[in-house]
Amino acid sequence: MIYQIRKDDFLSWLKKQREGKKVLVPTRKEEGYLFLPWVGDELDLREYTNTLKPVKDVFFPQWETLIRYRVEKEKSGEIVEETSRTEPLILFGVRPCDAKSIKLLDNVFDGEKYKDPYYCQRRKNTLIISLGCRELGPTCFCQNIGINPLSSEGSDILLVEFEDRYLAQSGSDTGLEILEQAPFTPAESKEQKIFDELNGNPARLNEAEFRSLALNNMPDFNDSVWEKLYQKCLNCGICTYLCPTCHCFDISEMTLDSEGKRVRSWDSCMYSSFTLHGSGHNPRPTGKERIRQRIMHKFNYFPQNYGVIACVGCGRCVAECPVNFDVREALKLLGVWKDDLQL
């Protein structure tokens, strides 16, 4: 079922949401778009393809406090669990690739055995309104790996711009509840048709097809192709930090005298310190092992564990890599990129 809303009406509706909730919108900064609290009355989405930092940042921030403690010698000290400071949140303008990335991260942080309370709380408190892509950015490749740029997967509500309106589709029950009420109205059959037509250009490759390619065609762990791949990589953390699905983290301490806190912060499999043992042994000592790990994790291990590829084709790693390490080229070299698809 498709709904619709005039852009003006949507803006007023979103504005009204600010009364009880924090509303984050893509905000234009010198360095690029970032999700920031919406101030002012207008949205500036000129040239908005995607945010510089992925939306994971909202649920799994670059760093956060896990516990606080106070310990004095010969005294018991105390531990205080950090109550996750989350507030009801609306995220507007998330791209479908990023919305999908959050669904992928749910597998990790909201698992069967262990749940990450900080992530889960924020997840529960957030409404995701995504904005379908009518045009793709220069480094986007979602369609090549089976992701539809107009999919509502992972969003509560998907909006697609059409003339002076947004066509809307729900991606969750919460989303549906909202769409069933004013100012959203059910779309006429004409709009339904338009939406279907826009959606008629879905993923060029089906996700399952790509996944089976990645699971079955990946070269052997010791294949010499891995040697070729890593040479230009300088092992910085850009691709991992800007990746919407990379979720590795470190846990460390920040202390002052007897008071301190245990914090977690993003970490990167590109860093040699990531797997360095206290003994000095390092199972992934060079760039070769680390690039292999990153690619295998996304395209092979993750699908083995969770049944889905851990890449959403947002292209941030391609756009921002200082040495132009292009994961599409890497996949091509590895034989898991369909040859007929152009870069």
Binding site: P138, T139, K232, A319, V323, N324, D326, R328
Partner: peptide
């Protein structure tokens, strides 16, 4: 030649 406009890529 790189894959992103304005960026050439190190080559060995």
């Amino acid at each position: 030649a790189g894959t992103v406009p304005g960026k050439s890529t190190p080559s060995f």
